[in-house]
Design a protein around this nucleic acid. Structure first.
Lengths: 238, 238
DNA sequence: CCCTTACGACAACAGCATTGACGTTCTGCG
DNA sequence: CGCAGAACGTCAATGCTGTTGTCGTAAGGG
């Protein structure tokens, strides 16, 4: 959706750009500079800092200049999301062990999202169709197909795998991205509301309150990922 | 979290209300009427219809009248989400078959979220510690413990189970809550950007493009849930 | 029956994304 | 070399959004 301007279009594809005119404040714009600045902005000031006007301010450019590079803020968001995907995959090579490879990819997606929780919350559920996303899908599909899964299974299992990774990424990122007060309040609930429930009314919670309070502080993704891989291994044709 | 107005406050607690003055168009407002109308509005016209102004229009009242009942739109959304939690497990009883019960609970969480995506996106990662949440946890922990999982396993497997359900709920809800234009664009990507990639550069995507485009339109949660249950069954002590 | 005040309405404000018009400055071409 | 035309940064304007200060009216207890 983002390219192929058949009609006169405000946006020029990055590859066709030739004239780099600095803004009044001296910045030279580019897709990369804008995406990097957006990531930094969101990382420093939270997701609500992701507005065209504040981005323009941070760039030292008029907000509308951004529309020379992206069709809309949504378009820009997709570019940011794709950058995150790319950062996660950089410097990784498959080993040939499908289970180890899938596990590594899953953990990388999760870790990269937690490193930029605000951006992850905004972008994790989008389909970008951009270079890094395509590369990631090709890689994961390849792992499954070469492991021996027939195509229909490979596709639907890939779907389950990636959505589980992204779902946990969103959930855990959202918890991190919460304002400090709300985050502490949510954490405290496990000690206040759940410890001390009567065994008569809530036997199962009462019996495991300590375990619950401890377990809920961590991400459940590593376990969920291993469970998924267990199930995949069991379904692999021999 | 939202009440206890120690200072002069625009909002009067529902219990202390006495004067019910109809609006110009004849509606009599109340917390319940506003929450119900908001739910209906989101259900009928999509998540982007959830604005104070459109809600005022639907109520037949000035938008600012809503602030006599809720401190902010976020406050209102939490009230809506709370309403949803109450509807979730109503009328359901465990059958004693742990696998069928867990599957039913997972599917209910997912379905309820999809029915009201906007509220689900904002509420899924918060720990409320309120009555309905406690009831749900007690139920799920009970299913696992009575199935025969030792306590530490029951707790961590519960954690993986609930976060998987909520993660998929957020992901799929967010896709539904997207503005129509972005949603269609995301869907279209599978037909435009992924179909027609060369088998030379992207052999795995090229071989499965049709399968991908078809599979990605559906939620992967039912499959992911079954995979998780497979893995649980395999880990159950005999 | 009247006084207090709950509460709905109005208007205004700040901030949002987006766009059409304008003018400067860069660059390929002659 | 220089010039034409386009690339692209800037400005101004539009119509949204949530939110709030103020005012008037009507409800209902005394």
């Amino acid at each position: 959706m983002t390219d192929r301007p058949d009609r006169p279009d405000r946006v020029v594809p990055e590859t066709a750009r030739r004239r780099r005119r600095p803004t009044k404040q001296g910045t030279v714009l580019s897709e990369q500079v804008i995406v990097d600045t957006a990531l930094r902005l969101v990382g420093q000031h939270g997701a609500q800092a992701f507005t065209v006007r504040r981005l323009g301010l941070a760039l030292g450019a008029d907000p509308s200049a951004i529309y020379r590079y992206f069709h809309s803020t949504d378009d820009l968001l997709l570019a940011v999301a794709d950058e995150l995907i790319g950062l996660g995959l950089d410097g990784w090579r498959p080993t040939g062990d499908w289970r180890a490879d899938l596990r590594e990819v899953g953990m990388r997606i999760h870790a990269r999202s937690l490193a930029h929780p605000q951006a992850a919350v905004l972008a994790a559920y989008r389909t970008t169709g951009r270079a890094n996303e395509i590369r990631a899908i090709e890689t994961m599909l390849g792992i499954l197909r070469e492991a021996g899964f027939p195509d229909p299974d490979a596709v639907s299992l890939y779907h389950a795998f990636i959505d589980q990774a992204l779902g946990f990424a969103v959930l855990d990122s959202a918890a991190l991205a919460l304002p400090a007060t709300a985050r502490h309040a949510d954490n405290g609930v496990w000690d206040t509301a759940y410890r001390g429930l009567s065994p008569d009314t809530h036997p199962h919670i009462a019996a495991t309150a300590d375990l619950l309070a401890a377990d809920m502080r961590r991400s459940a993704y590593p376990l969920a990922l291993d469970l998924l891989l267990d199930a995949l291994a069991a379904r692999l044709p021999s």
